[in-house]
Structure formats: structure tokens, C-alpha cells
Design a protein around this nucleic acid. Structure first.
Length: 113
DNA sequence: AAACTGACTAATA
DNA sequence: CTATTAGCCAGTT
């Protein structure tokens, strides 16, 4: 179990529909710079995490992409397909090579108060 | 303790 | 554009 998974999940929850955020961005917003890999690790544990905390069911994990704006390669190709469908379902255009334009869709979170 | 492993990333070539 | 390489860091051998 990844130590800061819950903190990452909390940030992922704030990504608005139709926008995306990068792994590094999530880590930074969670106050843990240089932990991009752990964000990915945390998401891969999601199924188990949901078993423990069912409220994570609606976590918008599909809105997380890599620094290149791409859907990161997965062991299970079906997962990539699912992510693609979920994104398209909320209006995000995904290229043939599984990439989205960060220019257009990256989430610019509001300034702190 | 040492090596290995990632849904990662920025810098090079 | 693709491919490598180094850093990264917590969890697991």
C-alpha cells in the first residue's frame, strides 16, 4: 500500500469534468513534489482501495495523464481503452496515439486562498 | 543493507 | 518525431 495514496486521491477528486491533470501535477498539488511515480502506484492500487473505501468508486482516475498528455501504457490494454472512452465521454478529444492536448484540457486549478 | 520495481519526468541524442 | 539515460522515492524482495 502506497503511503500517500489518500492524499493523491483527494487531489484527483478535484479535477473537473472535461479536464486532465498530470501525475507530477497531482503530486505537487498534494504537497509531495517528485512523487509522480507514486501517484501512478496509488492509482494502480485503486481496485483494492475501493474495496476498503467504497466512496472511491467515483474517483475520476481517467483524468490523470502523463507529462506528455498521453494515457500511460498499462499491462492491461483494456484499461487504456477504458480510460480513453471515459475521457471521450466527457468531451475530451483523444488522438489515435492515445494522447490529449494539455494545451486545451490541462486543469489549471484556482489559486490558493 | 542492497537491489529491484514502477499508470513518472526532464534532458539528451 | 523516437530512443536512452539519469534522477526520483516508497514499497517489496
Amino acid at each position: 500500500m502506497t503511503k500517500h495514496a489518500d492524499r493523491f486521491y483527494a487531489v484527483v477528486r478535484r479535477i473537473p469534468r472535461g479536464r486532465v491533470a498530470t501525475y507530477g501535477q497531482i503530486a505537487a498539488l498534494a504537497g509531495l513534489p517528485n512523487h509522480a511515480r507514486h501517484v501512478g502506484n496509488a492509482l494502480s492500487e485503486l481496485p483494492e482501495a475501493i474495496a476498503v473505501d467504497p466512496s472511491l468508486k467515483d474517483l475520476p482516475w481517467h483524468r490523470v495523464v502523463n507529462a506528455s498528455g498521453g494515457i500511460s501504457p498499462r499491462f492491461d490494454l483494456n484499461d487504456q481503452r477504458r480510460q480513453r472512452e471515459r475521457l471521450e465521454a466527457e468531451g475530451v478529444v483523444v488522438s489515435d496515439s492515445d494522447r490529449v492536448s494539455l494545451k486545451r484540457y490541462q486543469w489549471r486549478q484556482p489559486a490558493e486562498s
